[in-house]
């Protein structure tokens, strides 16, 4: 379990993740990801593939063998990076208590 405490004002790590969710990261972003991607198995965000390489449904692990996955049928992705960003924002909210919206993405 990560000891790292996220700074809710550090939007730079969020921007960096938005640009490149998979691959090389700064040490700062990696620390955030180690926090976000750890945690308990129960309730963990995962993607269930509906159409290979094209479509995924957001889901949560039940944390118990044999139990069904919790499927969020209304949250469907057709772009992997959008799915990463969606879950990143959910975790930001969970860990900071604040919604994550980048000013440049506000409409």
């Amino acid at each position: 379990m990560a000891r790292f405490k996220i700074d809710p004002d550090d939007l730079a790590v969020a921007r960096e993740f938005r640009r490149q969710p998979v691959g090389y990261h700064s040490k700062n972003l990696q620390a955030v990801l180690n926090l976000f991607r750890g945690g308990p198995v129960e309730g963990k965000w995962v993607l269930v593939c509906r159409k290979p390489w094209r479509e995924w449904v957001l889901a949560q692990l039940p944390g118990k063998r044999g139990a069904p996955l919790v499927l969020h049928e209304d949250v469907v992705f057709t772009d992997w990076n959008e799915a990463e960003w969606n879950v990143f924002r959910r975790r930001w909210q969970e860990h900071t208590g604040r919604a994550l919206t980048l000013p440049e993405e506000k409409r």
Partner: peptide, 19 residues
Amino acid sequence: GIDYSTTEIGMGRLVELNP
């Protein structure tokens, strides 16, 4: 990918579950 939470840290992306 189902039993261990830290899997996602090691794979550096969301866990994708197939049928």
